[in-house]
């Protein structure tokens, strides 16, 4: 059973002893930050999984996230998949995304503290410092470039990763130069994985997807999950829906 699979993977990490061995378990039916548990105790996680109705996922918790101003964030991007040709999926990425920042400084401990570890807006908005550092705890891609620059400077200053002689300093990562291209690779990979379930599609079918990522302090992008009914931000929703309609709907009804 998959509980056994988790227990063995947990034990492997425990033996390595490299990190504090936190994992995140969630219901596949969950939304708005509900039915999620982070813990470094296998017993607690298994009890949580047993309490869930329906299916669940358990993943290694990313313990070394890149931080902004000491706080954890995840990256939300939006993707459109269309099937004007029922035998092929066309994949699009919206060129703006958001970082969802937590309200409380990050520590690689206190895993029960959702304000520190779970960046969902529905969780964070109950914290007294919500909206204090950035409006709605959101950061746009232009500011993300600034975050990446600061991160790079900090690493360089510390003589950490970039201080090693064998590592060339290629300058800071950028959203459009590094992050989005990697995100697009991951998106294509996930869709290729399930292509046999997706094809053929009814002609004209389309779907918006919301992808969540964490970027580690080493700059590696890690996929967290894919959302079928993604929320958007109030500033982006207007353009996003108009642009989606242009590609997914208007294209199916050309001007006479």
């Amino acid at each position: 059973d998959e509980r056994q699979g988790f227990a063995s993977a947990y034990d492997e990490y425990q033996k390595e002893g490299k990190c504090s061995n936190a994992w995140i378990a969630k219901s596949t039916l969950g939304f708005k930050g509900k039915d999620i548990k982070v813990s470094d105790s296998a017993t607690k996680l298994l009890a949580f999984i047993d309490s869930l109705k329906g299916r669940w996922v358990v993943q290694k918790y990313i313990e070394n996230p890149m931080l902004v101003d000491g706080r954890k964030f995840d990256i939300r991007t939006w993707h459109l998949v269309t099937a004007h040709d029922p035998q092929a999926l066309q994949v699009y990425t919206f060129d703006e995304g958001v970082l969802r920042v937590s309200s409380k400084p990050y520590k690689n401990s206190d895993f029960d503290d959702d304000f520190m570890h779970i960046t969902n807006n529905a969780i964070q908005q109950d914290h007294p410092d919500y909206g204090k550092n950035e409006q709605d705890n959101l950061i746009d891609f232009a500011q993300f470039d600034h975050v990446l620059k600061l991160h790079h400077q900090r690493k360089k200053g510390k003589g950490g990763e970039l201080g090693k002689e064998d590592e060339k300093d290629n300058g800071p990562m950028t959203v459009r130069g590094n992050v989005l291209p990697r995100i697009n690779e991951i998106v294509m990979e996930t869709l290729r994985c399930i292509k046999d379930f997706l094809l053929p599609q009814p002609c004209g079918a389309y779907q918006m997807l919301g992808y969540d990522f964490v970027i580690t302090d080493k700059g590696d992008l890690q996929l967290l999950e894919v959302n079928l009914t993604p929320g958007t931000s109030t500033t982006l929703v207007g353009k996003m829906v108009a642009d989606m309609n242009e590609i997914a709907v208007d294209a199916a009804f050309p001007d006479p």
């Binding site: 459109l80 092929a88 999926l89 066309q90 990425t93 919206f94 998106v187 094809l199 353009k239 242009e246």
Partner: peptide, 13 residues
């Protein structure tokens, strides 16, 4: 259009 925020990134068939 060129202004469309959704940029084509790939095809799966």
């Amino acid at each position: 259009s060129l202004n469309n925020g959704f940029k084509h990134v790939g095809k799966i068939e």
